[in-house]
């Protein structure tokens, strides 16, 4: 850099870094204890899940909602995911520990149940309504634990109270999400027929669940990596900037892809109009 600005930038970073690198001793201890507790709880949950024999009759422990969910599960999901969500080799993975957030995402967007085995489950009309999805989620949650959507149902930031959330969300979106979903949120191709879906119709809840659980080939963005607040900022950016904001540059945004669709447009519209004009000019009247 020709001027001192990068240093300024670094100073700004340095402040943040200092705060993050050197938390007080007490806070560090507290954090360590909390992490320990969480790990213990998780280990317990996993153990419970992996030892189903011992708890074979424990279905009675399920809450009423989970019982309903089990009914649905045994009707629609058991073929591929097996009894008590243990998974069936070659058909479907185990659902132990995936959490209700996964169910909300997969069932809520109609990706599950799948109609056939293919590279990637596609979004379609959901087969289960909202309550049924909740019941299924509750069942899977009680069966093996795992990530859950926040209970307060808050997925976005209020831009009136927190106007910087949009820019921060945009920055996080470009670092973490655009490589697959694209700058414009139009989605993109992955290897061998897989793809990252477009985000144009994704609800805040779906976006949150997807980040939390990393469905299919999407990486997991746990709460340690992207805090719930950061997730809400990203969702705010996606919903406000990519979904609701009308493109200022024209009636048609060409999918915000840039060059590919522009190339189609210049030949399909520009050259076509002008060639017909030329035909008319030189045509005999």
């Amino acid at each position: 850099m020709t001027s001192g600005s990068p240093a300024g930038r670094w100073r700004f970073r340095g402040v943040l870094a200092r705060r993050r690198t050197a938390p007080s001793r007490a806070r560090r201890r507290l954090g360590a204890a909390a992490r320990m507790l969480a790990a213990l709880a998780l280990a317990g949950g996993v153990y419970t899940a992996f030892a189903p024999g011992a708890f074979a009759e424990d279905t009675t422990q399920l809450s009423a909602t989970a019982q309903e969910g089990k009914q649905l599960y045994d009707n629609s999901c058991i073929t591929c995911h097996g009894r008590d969500a243990q998974g069936v080799t070659g058909r479907g993975p185990s659902l132990i520990g995936v959490g209700s957030a996964s169910v909300e995402f997969q069932v809520g967007t109609g990706r599950m149940p799948m109609t056939r085995q293919e590279a990637q489950a596609e979004e379609k009309k959901p087969q289960f309504d909202k309550t049924q999805t909740k019941q299924l989620g509750q069942y899977i949650q009680e069966l093996g634990g795992g990530p859950q959507l926040p209970s307060d149902g808050k997925y976005t930031e209020d831009l009136k109270e927190n106007p910087e959330a949009l820019a921060r969300g945009g920055e996080l979106f470009r670092v973490n999400c655009t490589s697959c979903h694209g700058f414009g949120g139009g989605g993109g191709a992955l290897s061998s027929g897989k793809y990252a879906p477009a985000l144009h119709d994704a609800s805040p809840e779906t976006l949150y669940a997807a980040m939390l659980t990393g469905p299919q080939n999407m990486p997991v963005f746990g709460d340690n990596q992207l805090t719930p607040e950061q997730k809400r900022e990203i969702i705010t950016y996606v919903t406000v900037q990519l979904q609701q904001d009308k493109d200022p540059g024209g009636l048609f945004n060409l999918g915000r892809y840039g060059p590919v669709t522009e190339g189609l447009a210049i030949f399909g519209v520009g050259i076509t109009i002008l060639v017909f004009t030329a035909l008319w000019i030189a045509g005999k009247s």
Binding site: F183, D247, P248, G249, G250, L251, L254, R256, Y257, G258
Partner: peptide, 14 residues
């Protein structure tokens, strides 16, 4: 075309 079709939206690209 400049009015109808948006060219690559640099503000989204960051």
């Amino acid at each position: 075309m400049a009015g109808l079709f948006q060219i690559n939206p640099i503000w989204l690209f960051g």
